[in-house]
């Protein structure tokens, strides 16, 4: 069963998030999804480990809450349950997913169409599913376009390169000014 991203987004637009889910409820919703697929969900200790791995400025709980919302408000849960394979490890899958979505805040996922799509596609990728009407290569290319984590690194690199260039030009101007002063020599 393929994930219909367009339809999921439409369902989500019809069911906006009114108030945040409590964390325990969000965890229960995600665990239930694994149970639906006859998979053992992460244990309480596994969830503690997942939380400890969070390096995204305390965004992990927001991401858990948004995943729970998407699973309950749309067909994502049913499609996920149908896609998960019996030999999958829920904890490893979640670890991979939360690493991939690390810089995404709940606000971004809620209000920004690109970050919502990225969040959904990364979930599809984590559960090794397919996007409806897309070849795997197309899905991979789209995921690459959307990847906010890589984009942040790219923006940071561009910013540093620009600062270095500004510094280099400033240095060159100073050196040129110094050379001009020395060439003039000392005059009263």
């Amino acid at each position: 069963m393929d994930f219909d991203i367009k339809h999921i987004r439409k369902q989500l637009a019809d069911t906006p998030l009114v108030s945040p889910y409590p964390h325990d409820l969000s965890v229960a919703i995600i665990c239930d999804t694994f149970r639906l697929a006859n998979l053992r969900p992460p244990s309480r200790q596994d969830w503690t480990v997942l939380e400890q791995r969070d390096r995204g400025a305390g965004l992990w709980k927001e991401q858990v809450m948004m995943l729970a919302h998407l699973l309950t408000a749309t067909e994502l849960r049913a499609t996920t349950a149908a896609t998960l394979r019996p030999n999958m490890d829920a904890t490893t899958l979640l670890q991979r997913f939360f690493t991939e979505v690390e810089p995404l805040t709940a606000e971004m996922i809620r209000s920004n169409v690109f970050r919502l799509e990225e969040f959904l596609r990364k979930w599809v990728h984590a559960v090794e599913g397919r996007v409806k009407d897309e070849a795997p290569q197309q899905s991979a290319a789209r995921l690459k376009q959307l990847d906010y984590r890589t984009a942040l690194q790219e923006m940071q690199r561009a910013d540093e390169a620009r600062k270095q260039e500004v510094e280099r030009r400033k240095q060159e101007l100073q050196e040129a000014a110094l050379r001009a002063t020395e060439a003039r020599g000392w005059r009263e």
């Binding site: 995404l104 805040t105 606000e107 971004m108 920004n112 690109f114 970050r115 376009q145 959307l146 990847d147 906010y148 984009a151 942040l152 790219e154 923006m155 561009a158 910013d159 620009r162």
Partner: peptide
């Protein structure tokens, strides 16, 4: 990507230049 203003502005709203793939975006 080369504009300091746009890099900062896009980051504020969770966007990046790669999101702009068509005029519809």
């Amino acid at each position: 990507l080369a504009s300091p203003y746009y890099v900062r502005r896009l980051q504020q709203v969770g966007l990046h230049p790669g999101d702009l793939q068509s005029l519809q975006d």
